[in-house]
């Protein structure tokens, strides 16, 4: 079983939690929990003192446990539609 010491040792070597998880055979979020005592999914309240624990990440720890985040739809078609509308709406330009 992965120990806190093992996790923090790898953290000290500059490894990411993805790498640590792979090395220890556990998910990266679990590696974070083992190393810091704080759930990576944001399910716990983190005190100011806890934020200074070794291995703590400043933010975005939920990325260690969540599946990929769905990307927003591309805005390009909206931009093109706006330009089309602007042409069609016959917006008068100042000075014309």
């Amino acid at each position: 079983m992965a120990s806190k010491a093992a996790v923090l040792h790898l953290v000290g070597l500059g490894r990411s939690y993805q790498e640590i998880g792979a090395a220890l055979g556990i998910p990266p979020g679990q590696a974070y929990l083992v190393g810091t005592g704080i759930p990576a999914d944001g399910g716990g309240t983190v005190s100011r003192a806890q934020r200074t624990r070794p291995g703590m990440l400043p933010s975005r720890t939920q990325c260690l446990v969540n599946p990929r985040e769905a990307p927003p739809p591309p805005a390009g078609p909206v931009h093109e539609w706006m330009r089309t509308r602007a042409r069609r709406d016959q917006l008068t330009r100042p000075g014309r």
Binding site: P73, P77, V78, W81, M82, T84, R85, R87, L91
Partner: peptide, 28 residues
């Protein structure tokens, strides 16, 4: 004339938001 998307022709909500926001004569 809002653009639509998907199998049910859902209007693109972001286009409606863009109209709410507004644009100039260049469409910017």
């Amino acid at each position: 004339d809002y653009p639509t998307t998907g199998s049910i022709a859902e209007p693109v909500a972001e286009a409606v938001l863009a109209e709410i926001n507004g644009w100039n004569s260049d469409g910017r």
